[in-house]
């Protein structure tokens, strides 16, 4: 299993900078969560990883070899991209089976039997064209492509968009089955963090094109806590730390801090100190404003 190394990736579209100096290493054997608000550059980053867009600057290697124009490296990287049945998309005229045929042609480790099994499990009609599929079906097709590619490094861009609760659970189950059986590396972007958090062992957080976090999920969560209680006691408990987010309700106050819960609890004041869930950490990191 090889490592993907990205160094100082920058991508500009005209005047707007979609990626700013992203440096990271994707180690084999992890499920990475790629988090970021809309427009933070998640899709651009995934496309950059798979050499689908030319970079403005920066280098990208897979197993030490450059990815750009490298047929062999590219056959081991798969991006299950978000499909859309919007008019004018060139793939819309393709039938499901023809779309999957591309997978057979392009991915070195493609597993046709697995692809068929997934198509059946999702109830996809292979004779339908992509333009005829519903939003949920489009996601299922992307998932099928990504999983059946058996690519050692697989990226999934918003795989659960448009899927209902049952299908989303089914997806994470399939993902974990495949991960435990094969040890492939996955990078998954999603906005529904409540469900996805337990699946990610590492998270990458993008904010305005910059990579602001790249660490183990547990380690990231352990850095944050919420302190709530009576205003003055909370202020005393948080003294010396800058809150990321503050909410007040009468005399009740809740501060989100980037401080381990134990540090605050050690002060022994009458406040509740609780750890944050991943979606709360995400809001704290990317949500923006601090109230005075």
């Amino acid at each position: 299993m090889k490592t993907l190394c990205a160094q100082n990736l920058c991508k500009s579209y005209g005047g707007t900078k979609a990626l700013r100096d992203v440096t990271l290493t994707l180690e084999p054997g992890h499920i990475y969560g790629l988090l970021g608000r809309n427009g933070a550059g998640k899709t651009t980053l995934l496309k950059a990883f798979t050499a689908q867009i030319p970079l403005t600057t920066g280098t990208l290697t897979y197993g030490g070899e450059p990815v750009w124009e490298n047929e062999k490296a590219l056959s081991e990287l798969c991006l299950g991209r978000e499909l859309s049945s919007r008019l004018g998309n060139s793939e819309n005229a393709l039938k499901v089976k023809d779309y999957l045929r591309a997978g057979r042609l392009f991915y070195a480790h493609w597993d046709e039997a697995y692809a068929r099994q997934l198509v059946q499990r999702f109830g996809l009609n292979p004779r339908k064209t992509i333009g005829q599929l519903s939003k949920g079906m489009l996601s299922m097709l992307s998932i099928t492509m990504a999983l059946a590619s058996r690519a050692p490094l697989t990226f999934l861009d918003e795989p659960v968009a448009g899927l209902d609760m049952v299908a989303r659970e089914e997806f994470y189950k399939l993902l974990l089955e495949e991960f435990t059986a094969s040890g492939r590396t996955f990078v998954v972007s999603t906005h529904i963090l409540e469900e996805a958090a337990p699946v990610f062992d590492r998270v990458l957080v993008l904010k305005e094109g910059q990579l602001i976090e790249d660490c183990e999920t547990d380690a990231l969560l352990a850095q944050f806590c919420a302190v709530s209680g009576r205003e003055d006691v909370v202020d005393a408990a948080c003294a010396g730390y800058t809150p990321l987010h503050v909410e007040t309700m009468g005399r009740q106050k809740c501060c989100t801090l980037r401080t381990p819960a134990a540090d605050i609890a050690a002060r022994g004041l009458d406040v509740d100190v609780t750890p944050l869930a991943l979606h709360q950490v995400f809001v704290a990191l990317c949500g923006g404003e601090v109230e005075p």
């Binding site: 689908q52 124009e69 047929e71 392009f106």
Partner: peptide, 14 residues
Amino acid sequence: EVYARLVLSFGATR
């Protein structure tokens, strides 16, 4: 059209 943009997304080289 289909070739280039679509096939690039499957990892074809230019």
